[in-house]
Deep mutational scan, measured.
Amino acid sequence: LQLFIKTLTGKTFTVEMEPSDTIENLKAKIQDKEGIPPDQQRLIFAGKQLEDGRTLSDYNIQKESTLHLVL
């Protein structure tokens, strides 16, 4: 599923993930694309901070959802 990642600077980029992927996987993918170390990434969806060990489906993140990346 394609997700939109929006940064505080207003930049938006996309990543391609599976619902079974963990937040950790997502942070690694963001590191590949943007060079931001996972330990500096905080991801927010629907007002909640996402925890590394959980999956996208745990948070009911669907295709074309927008996640906010806070550094």
Rank of each mutant, 00 (worst) to 15 (best):
K33P: 01
T66Y: 08
D32G: 11
V70M: 10
H68E: 14
D39K: 09
K6W: 08
V70W: 11
G53Y: 12
D21L: 05
A46H: 15
G10Y: 03
P19V: 07
T9P: 06
G47I: 02
D39P: 06
Y59R: 01
I23W: 01
T12D: 07
Q2L: 14
T14F: 08
Q2H: 11
F4W: 10
L1G: 06
D32I: 08
I5Q: 00
G10A: 05
P37L: 09
P37I: 05
K48T: 13
R54N: 12
R42E: 09
V15C: 03
K63R: 12
T55S: 14
I44Y: 15
K33E: 13
K63A: 11
G10D: 06
F13G: 01
I61T: 03
V15I: 14
D21V: 03
E34C: 05
N25C: 05
I61K: 02
L71H: 12
S20C: 05
P38S: 15
Q2G: 06
R54K: 14
P38A: 15
S65Y: 07
K27Y: 03
I36L: 07
L8S: 13
T55C: 03
K27T: 02
N25A: 13
K11S: 09
S65Q: 08
P19H: 10
L1S: 05
G47Q: 05
Q49H: 10
Y59P: 00
E18P: 05
I23N: 01
F45P: 00
N25G: 09
D52P: 08
Q40H: 13
K33N: 06
V15W: 02
T12Q: 09
T7W: 09
T12W: 09
D58K: 03
Y59T: 02
T7L: 13
L26A: 02
E64N: 15
T22K: 08
F13R: 02
E24F: 12
G10K: 06
D32M: 14
Y59E: 04
G53D: 08
L50Y: 01
V70T: 08
Q49W: 11
R42A: 06
I30G: 00
K27L: 02
T7Y: 15
A28G: 09
S57Y: 08
F13I: 10
Q62T: 12
V15D: 00
K29D: 03
I61M: 07
T66C: 04
Q40Y: 07
V15K: 00
S65D: 11
I23G: 01
T12S: 09
T14N: 08
T55L: 09
